[in-house]
């Protein structure tokens, strides 16, 4: 019985996850909110936590000064920490999210946070790619990061 319930739950979760792009029509905080509702349904899902962190960071980097962005960044930080503490989470993905988090912080206030966090960004992406050289998100973000740094040359 237990195994049948378990299989059913897994199947439901997979279906729900596949439906994310369709159900989460809302972007930004509303999209994050929808994912968090799903997370209440599947509290053990690491993939959902990763999606929440990623969507939060995506919103924040596009709206770095928006009202309420600190709450969204707070969510991102919370879910990255949860993933970081879970040995089942892919370390390369977690490092990518960490690098992304600090990248957003730089975009929010380049003058102050640039020098404070650039090492965090660089090292996290480097480590992510060392662990998994095929990590596409880390590759893209790292490339964007260096393009941004080069653009800041006088």
């Amino acid at each position: 019985m237990m195994s049948r319930i378990s299989r059913k739950s897994v199947l439901a979760f997979v279906v729900a996850l596949m439906a994310v792009p369709f159900t989460c029509k809302a972007q930004g905080p509303a999209g994050v909110a929808e994912l968090k509702r799903m997370e209440y349904m599947y509290p053990d899902s690491l993939a959902l936590k990763q999606q929440i962190a990623l969507l939060s960071l995506n919103y924040s980097i596009s709206n770095p000064k928006a009202e309420g962005v600190e709450a969204v960044m707070g969510d991102a930080e919370k879910y990255i920490r949860i993933l970081d503490e879970n040995p089942a989470a892919d370390p390369s993905d977690v490092l990518t999210l960490k690098g992304f988090y600090y990248l957003v912080r730089i975009v929010q206030d380049p003058a102050v946070n640039g020098r404070k966090y650039y090492m965090e960004v660089s090292q996290n992406f480097d480590k992510a790619l060392k662990l998994n050289p095929e990590n596409k998100l880390a590759q893209v973000l790292q490339q964007k990061f260096y393009e941004g740094m080069n653009a800041s040359r006088p």
Binding site: A33, E34, K36, R37, G68, A71
Partner: peptide, 19 residues
């Protein structure tokens, strides 16, 4: 309080509170 996620448990039906 803005930004609160209000929803029906076990569904994705919900909304985020406005300002």
């Amino acid at each position: 309080l803005a930004g609160v996620n209000v929803f029906i448990m076990g569904s994705i039906e919900g909304a985020v509170s406005d300002t």
